[in-house]
């Protein structure tokens, strides 16, 4: 019980920190902007975590879905002048629908083939956006994407208000992730990651479960993309590039794949690292690339996984105690 209280305290402190953060940096649009972008990317990384970290299928098409979300919102709000909220909803739905179609086909392939297949689909989405001038504006991209429409007295003109809006979506995304992972459904996903054959002999319909998990993860990407479009007001084909998905993956691995806090830790860490190394332009990858390699070799469960491993070692001396009637999936148990 003590541990849970402890965990709750940490979460409460973090949430309060996130809530008061804009008050500390009220005049610093740059800091708020970076934070907001970080939150958006984190939403997308939570999505990848669900399919790759918990269900065990490495999808490399997520930048493509991020872009579909971004472009759907961008096109609907600029060309069709649709209400932002309706456009946001449609962006998530359309991305999910695209994910459903891809999932139906791609999930017939396994392991390496799935990764390659999704990588190629992601690249195809990039090419489509880049070449389909009439719809997407091609290399020029889409400009003048509006900020969210006000809801009653709530407006989203300031950096602070956008920050809170994105934060709300992030918290919702994390909340849903936690609920899923710590449910029977989440156990089902983890069983599939563990061994698809075993999961089938346990009566689990792996096809349906993988598909559902894939579609949710794609919906996360779509939501993140749509928010990104509205925040930056401009999008180009680059949002669909393979580098984008490689970045997401890097955040996920370093933070901790298959853990519940890993995506947030990894994303926020890298977002700020990238800012500090900004003067080195693309060369920060000289450090990030090897970090990624070293992480998978030596700390395959990332920062969060490593933390829990150490903690488990320290606690191991204690004898097993009477459990609560239901034992939630502890984070340390969710690593690959």
């Amino acid at each position: 019980m003590g541990k849970i209280l402890n965990q709750r305290t940490v979460i409460a402190v973090l949430v309060i920190f996130a809530l008061v953060f804009p008050l500390i940096y009220a005049d610093n649009r740059y800091v708020l902007h970076v934070m907001t972008i970080g939150f958006i990317f984190a939403i997308s990384v939570y999505g990848m975590n669900l399919i790759a970290g918990f269900t065990g299928q490495l999808s490399l098409a997520h930048a493509g879905f991020f872009a579909i979300g971004a472009y759907t919102l961008g096109i609907l709000t600029t060309r069709n002048e649709m209400n932002f909220w309706l456009a946001l909803l449609l962006a998530v739905l359309l991305t999910s629908a695209a994910g459903l179609v891809l999932g139906l086909i791609a999930l017939r392939t396994k392991e390496h083939f799935f990764a390659i297949y999704t990588l190629i689909v992601g690249y195809l989405i990039y090419l489509l956006i880049d070449k389909w001038d009439g719809l997407t504006g091609g290399v020029r991209g889409l400009i003048g994407i509006p900020i969210p429409d006000p809801i009653g007295p709530l407006t989203f003109e300031s950096a602070t208000s956008m920050y809170y809006l994105v934060l709300a979506f992030l918290l919702l995304s994390i909340f849903i992730s936690v609920r899923i992972v710590r449910s029977l459904t989440g156990r089902t996903y983890i069983a599939i990651r563990n061994s698809e054959e075993l999961a089938q002999t346990l009566g689990i319909n792996t096809r349906i479960n993988k598909l559902v998990s894939f579609v949710i993860s794609v919906a996360y990407a779509g939501l993140a993309g749509a928010l990104y479009a509205s925040l930056t007001r401009f999008i180009g084909p680059d949002v669909a590039s393979t580098n984008m998905v490689f970045n997401f993956l890097m955040y996920l691995i370093v933070g901790g794949i298959g853990t519940l806090s890993g995506p947030l830790v990894g994303t926020m860490l890298f977002i700020w690292l990238e800012q500090f190394l900004r003067s080195y332009q693309e060369y920060h990858l000289l450090i990030f690339g090897p970090i990624l390699v070293l992480m998978v070799i030596f700390f395959p469960t990332g920062i969060v996984g490593g933390f829990y491993k150490i903690k488990a070692k320290l606690q191991h001396k204690k004898l097993p105690k009477e459990s609560k009637y239901f034992n939630p999936v502890p984070e340390k148990s969710t690593e690959k």
């Binding site: 899923i180 449910s183 459904t185 009566g203 459990s323 034992n327 969710t334 690593e335």
Partner: peptide, 26 residues
């Protein structure tokens, strides 16, 4: 599932007799 507890490994075995879906989870 090596990193998980013994009981955690067994719980999913009864999954096929349960009906909870994504909605129930969320």
């Amino acid at each position: 599932f090596e990193q998980s507890t013994v009981i955690d490994n067994v719980i999913v075995g009864h999954r096929l007799r349960t009906k909870s879906k994504l909605f129930d989870a969320v």
